[in-house]
Design a binder for these strands. Structure first.
Lengths: 337, 337
DNA sequence: ATGGAACTATGAAGCAATCCAAAAAAGGCC
DNA sequence: GGCCTTTTTTGGATTGCTTCATAGTTCCAT
């Protein structure tokens, strides 16, 4: 698990070669202005000749600092997270930090392990997208960490830390409002697992939009399913058996929407013409699907950027209250509605 | 760009608290068996009480070793690379390495910068997916690096290093062979930029398959375009103007294939019924598209895993010749053909 | 010349661990 | 108990760089 390295050129060697002290050489690598141009040039020349490579590990040790930040996400293959990662990565890159990556695959033990590893690596800060099932121990542990940290995407009640998240209920409300404005009165909510908080939040927004418009919530139009394309297919077939079928469908996710559209076609309906469809997530395919999917975007990149900014403020000791940033999703209208 | 840390508990403090020497404590954190159970227990107890966190940075400095590996890719939002990353990550996680991530967005200067940063961080090894446009300087530099390294996905002529790549010509050949076997004689090759090596490689396989089957290559059936959905749309509209249109289409990429299918529908054809379509890449959407797309998969996860394995062998000083692993893509038949 | 700023440069200590060789403790046997 | 072997434990040096207080140079104005 370890890998040893052969002779690296050290700052001492450079200094010796250039005929100055190590301290001087050190000041030069760090671009300290109080070194004369003459010696600076001389030393830089020596570095070039010897092929010197700065050793951040040693530097960080001595200066008790760190220029890496850890970022722990649950799944890179999920488009949301890979986009989120890009957002974080970009923002931190810009200010000179390097990213240590970890993926939990939604396992508590892996998350625990990654937290340990990153702290052992002396990361200067930590961005954590917590796994869904979190214990009291986790909460306690996170509160114990005195490394700057921001929680993202999923909030952990009880954890005192900055947080960047998305207002899912509001997203659902926007989607349903849009369908109501288009004149629909029977709007289904399809897909998703009833027990998951993600579903509950969308459902809240859905109910809210309907009741504000004076429409009744028909439980028969809310059908749960696995959060997959197949799930969407099943759900739509079920809802179409209703004697009074919906005229528009708000789907739990884009994936569900794809299944729903497949089901509609099987039953001879044309999505976007006979029945309006709205998805949720704005996965990249939504745009290129047939038909292009109207959906709700939660701006994963922007979320990542905000998380990085909050972390940066903490790391640079910018004094402020604990912060919560809740981003509001936006509706993206395409041909499926 | 730096972040200083408050008092961390050190091994000295632990040792003092437990009434042993630092050396002993050090042996214990490293699970050295020649420590009596009594003292081990005592010291572990002290660590617990003081909340000791192992400092890998200091340890790596002293032992001249590293337990991080750097991985540089061109784009995380590209599904191929995010899957590739998962493959690498998983394999390295298993053997206890931590991943330092960098993204070049296909920029040479960013790649240069990332290489420097990672070497300065004393990574134990490096997996590099080089940017497309690479200079002689890059080649020279890579040959100078004496950190274990493996190149992946894109080969750099002149660089002496292990390599894991994909046999794209063979993938194209397999796709076209399949269409020929289905009885097609007029097979188009649509999409992609003529100048890119990725296109040329697919074209080689395409030509090869046709000529081996005794079929003539009709230049009018090879239409280039931007590697986007729009590009695919344009290309297919153009090829359909042909007095003798193709009966099957091999697309440069899945993205192109989506555009091609859209174009076919516009002209009243049903993809998979009237005209067979084969894509390339097997992006996750290919499976859930309408209709599901027959395509060529190049197993990004597996590629990542292989890269990680090669790197691991180098890092653990497993003596062997320089290695090249070329994976052969596979055909995945779905309803679009 | 000369005294005092204002620049530059440096020596030695220190960061938190590991390494190595050598000392101390424990066991075994006569 | 004494002697030898084996098992545990330990100083002190070391890793490559930064820190900090101090020393050495310039450079002007006196």
């Amino acid at each position: 698990m370890k890998q040893s390295k052969k002779g690296r050129v050290t700052l001492q060697q450079v200094a010796e070669h250039a005929g100055v002290s190590t301290s001087t050489a050190s000041l030069i690598v760090r671009n300290n202005p109080r070194i004369s141009d003459a010696t600076r040039k001389k030393v830089l020349q020596s570095m070039q000749e010897l092929g010197y490579v700065y050793d951040r590990v040693a530097a960080n040790l001595r200066s008790q600092s760190s220029d890496t930040v850890g970022i722990i996400i649950t799944d890179i293959s999920n488009t949301f997270f890979s986009e989120f990662l890009i957002g974080v990565h970009d923002a931190l890159d810009e200010v000179g930090y390097t990213v240590l990556l970890g993926t939990t695959f939604d396992s508590v033990s892996k998350q625990d392990h990654l937290l340990s590893t990153m702290l052992e690596h002396r990361v200067g800060g930590l961005i954590l997208c917590p796994v869904s099932e979190s214990t009291e121990e986790t909460v306690a542990r996170l509160n114990d960490i005195d490394t700057p940290m921001v929680l993202a995407v999923r909030e952990l009640p009880g954890v005192k830390s900055d947080y960047v998240g998305i207002n899912y209920p509001e997203g659902a409300r926007i989607a349903v409002d849009y369908l109501i404005e288009k004149g629909h009165e029977r709007i289904a909510l399809l897909g998703g697992i009833r027990e998951s908080s993600t579903w509950v939040e969308r459902m809240e927004g859905y109910r809210d939009a309907l009741s504000r418009a004076g429409l009744e919530v028909d439980e028969a139009l809310m059908i749960n399913s696995a959060p997959t394309r197949e799930g969407g297919l099943e759900a739509v077939l079920k809802v179409l058996e209703n004697p009074e079928p919906p005229t528009a469908i708000f789907c739990f996710s884009d994936l569900i929407a794809f299944g729903v559209m497949q089901g509609l076609r099987m039953k001879g309906f044309t999505p976007g013409k006979d029945i309006d469809i709205v998805g949720f997530d704005n996965v990249p395919v939504a745009e290129i699907y047939h038909p292009p999917l109207t959906t709700i975007s939660s701006f994963p990149r922007r979320t990542g950027k905000e998380a990085a900014n909050l972390l940066y403020q903490q790391m640079e000791k910018i004094k402020r209250e604990q912060q919560r940033i809740i981003l509001t999703p936006e509706l993206i209208v395409r041909e499926s509605s």
